[in-house]
Structure formats: C-alpha cells, structure tokens
Design a protein around this nucleic acid. Structure first.
Lengths: 231, 231
DNA sequence: GATCAAACGCAACGCTTGTAGCGTTAGCCG
DNA sequence: CGGCTAACGCTACAAGCGTTGCGTTTGATC
C-alpha cells in the first residue's frame, strides 16, 4: 500500500516539505497542545480537543503523531530547542541557588506547571514521550554543567568533579517533591537543595577521580570520611 | 476453593461489610492489578483486563474503584501497609547507603519496577492516586527518619537536623533518574547519593535552627558558608 | 504554469470504554 | 432458620476513540 519506508511515524523537521502548510500545521498543533495542557491538564487533553482548537483534522493528528502522547512528545522536542542558558551570578553557590529557584518558580503557578508536569507524566505512558523527555533533560543538564565548569575555573570546586552529578543533585530534591511525594515547594527548599549539592561537591563526593568507569560498584574507599564525620 | 486469607487486612474504605465476599473481591482485584502491571505495564492495564483476570465483573470495578486509577491507588494503599523498616548497619553512612541501594535494587528488574513505576505514573492522571502516593511516601520517609535519629543519638549528626530532608536527599537523585531523566542506575550512584546527603548533613545544610517556620524565604544568612566556600 | 506527489480534509464505520436498569447472591442479625 | 440489605453479576446501551477509503489541496519540480 503505502511505501513510505523512510520514516515510521514522525516526519517532524526532516520532512520532505520543510516549509509551508506542514510547518504551519505542526505549529498550530503545538500551540493547541500547550494551551490544552495549561488550561485543562493532561488527562483532559484528547485528540479531538487538539483537533478542534488547532483547526487540524483529527485524521491528520492520528496519522502524523499517532495519538496524544506523540503530540506531547513533539511539543517537548520543540520546547527543548530554545536558547535557555544557566544563570551566572559570579559564584557557585549563587548559581546553584538561582538554578534551583528557577525550577521552583517555574512550577509555582499551576498554569505554568501544567505543561512540564504533563511532559513527565506522558513519559509513563508512551516510550516515544519517554525518549523525548530523556533527550530534553540530557540537553538541559548538559547546559547546566557550565555552572560547575565556571566554578572549577575559579577554583571554587575540585577539578575532577562530575558536573552532571552536581546539577542533578541540585534539582533532584525539587523534582522529587514535584512529581513523586507531591509536597509543596518554596525558596527555602531550593536554597537547601543548592547548598546540599555545594556541600557535597566541596566534600569531594562528586569526584570521579579513582575510577571513572566505576569498576568496583560494591565498595569505594568512602568519600564520607570528609562528610559524615566532618561535623 | 481458594480462601487463602493471608491476613485480615483492612476493610474496604467505607464498606459496611468488613469481611466476606467484599474483602475477597478486593484482594482478587489487587492481585490482578499487580500482575497486570508487572506483566504488561501500566498503559496496558485496562478495566476489562482486571475484570477478566480477577473474576470480578466490569460493572463492579467501575462502581467501587471508578476506573483504573482508583484500582491502582487502592493497590498502593495496601502496599503501604507492610512492615518495612529501614536498615540498621550501625553507622549513618552505612544506613544511608543501604537505603539508597535498596531503592536501586528494587528497580533493577523491570518486572519489579513496573508496579512502583505505575504508581508514580498513575498519580499524574488521578488525584486519588496522587493522594495515595503522597500518603505512601510520607509514611515511608517517616520511617526512614529513624536512621537519622539514631545517628543523632550516636553523635554522628547535629541534633537540629531535619531528618526528613536528609532521607529525601538520599533518594531524590535516584528517583530523578528513574522517573524524570530516565537514566540507568547502579550501586555507585546509590552510594554517591547517600554520601552527598551525609556530607550536606555534616556541613549543617539540613539544620533547621534559626527559623523553623522559614519566615524569610528570600535570603537566609546562608548555610553555604560551610558548604560552597567550605572547601 | 503544468505536472506530480505529499499532505490534508472529509464522512463514515467498528471497536472499546463507561454507564444504567434490574435481578441475584451473600453476609449480617434477630 | 428466615428476613433484610449491601454488594455483586448480567444485559443492554450511549458515547467517545481510533481507523479507513477516497477525494481535495498544497508545495515542490521541471
């Protein structure tokens, strides 16, 4: 029947018709998805809702995106193509705190939190959305590593520090409360998360010096000699 | 036939008939839900699947649980009624590491990870499941605080430490990778998370001394004097 | 600007999901 | 042991979801 072998489902930016109606359709769908998520939440985001609010026919939505999860994943791909860059306050502590507060502020208003929350939730239902989310955060954390690299250049952090582990440590307690334990957030928790990561970094917990490939996962010489017993 | 009553269990919420068929029905549904989650995953867990595999009629499932999310939430409630208690290795560092490794091991096999992952995912779709998840982790972390309290009693940790923040800091990076960034886990990351929390605790980041109610969320005297600049 | 193929719109259909009415079963109690 | 009623099973149905076939529009190419 259809010999469209090249791409399984998602024409996306590599389509044979880069400009014109196809691009307009994609943008209209993306806007409708984000609007729907913000106003009604993910469970209420149905294909027919997007069809009605985007002016794109239901059939087209199923053909190009396969369903709601695909449209959410596509919107997530577009969201990752922004020009965001981490803050630069001049000090590691300030940068990490600003980073953490940016997360908290981004989820403060329910309307703002709906779309990002939906992205995370969609990943539980669709492998396509899961892959988009993984890719999004990999890029996002990669940009954040700049903060740690600057600190290393200033001598604020040890040279062998795992920058990715540091920035993940900062946001992890916030995401835990947002998506798992569902506890409220505030700036105090943001600062606490940033300070905790900074303290662990200073204590050498994030050093990947002895064995980068981590051959012995069972027991390390324990970096907590500088941590637990330090106080 | 099968009156394998393992334990009296809790009566169905709001039920006026604590024992008998109602309890059996609930147990059968719970088993079918867990089996379905482990074998086919959450997206494939439909009401009719549970009806077929539990022997309970579809109408009853909708009446008592309202849908899939309700059944998952109910299974989560039952899962929280176990007798789990945190490990006791004799030292704070050992306890936190054991705690972290327990999380990693619990999600190592896909079949074991399916149900807990589904619990988290269901919370994105149903307020009922979200509340059940919140309650589950509140109780779980409450038990974990014992680890920190023992450490305080031994003099390993400052007396004013926020035990809840510590145990959340331990598991947060692991849950981040499991549910958000979807990166692989290993024991090295578990130890790293435990050591980071221990280091931050030793540095005084988790002290809730000056103002417990956190009146000034904008700027604190900064506990990072011992953290970021401490090295 | 004529041609061709990709992408889209349209209407209709089958399937699954969720609900309602009603009869039946089973736990509880006198 | 016999009545009472909550809880469950059954059938049927309405609504929404996802798919299909075909005609139309649009953008690229010569």
């Amino acid at each position: 029947m259809n010999e469209s072998i090249e791409e399984p489902e998602a024409p996306a930016p590599g389509s044979r018709r880069p400009g014109g109606r196809t691009a307009r359709t994609r943008a209209a769908v993306r806007d409708a998805v984000l609007t729907g998520l913000s106003e009604h939440g993910y469970p209420a985001l149905t294909v027919e809702y997007v069809a009605e609010h985007s002016g794109v026919h239901k059939t087209t939505l199923y053909r190009r995106w396969g369903g709601v999860e695909g449209m959410v994943a596509d919107a997530l791909d577009l969201a990752g193509e922004d020009r965001w860059s981490p803050p630069d306050t001049g000090s590691l502590g300030g940068d990490l705190r600003a980073l953490a507060r940016e997360v908290v502020d981004g989820f403060a208003e329910p309307a703002d939190a709906a779309a990002p929350t939906a992205f995370v939730g969609a990943a539980f239902q669709s492998p396509r959305a899961a892959e988009a989310l993984r890719s999004f955060y990999a890029e996002r954390f990669r940009r954040c590593e700049e903060v740690v690299k600057r600190a290393v250049a200033r001598g604020e952090a040890p040279a062998g520090a795992d920058a990715g582990a540091v920035v993940r440590a900062v946001s992890a307690p916030l995401f835990l409360r947002l998506f798992v334990t569902r506890e409220p957030l505030d700036h105090r928790l943001a600062d606490q998360a940033a300070d905790a990561a900074a303290a662990a970094l200073a204590a050498g917990v994030f050093d990947r010096s002895p064995a980068d490939a981590a051959p012995t996962t069972k027991d390390r010489p324990a970096a907590d000699t500088a941590g637990a017993a330090g106080g």
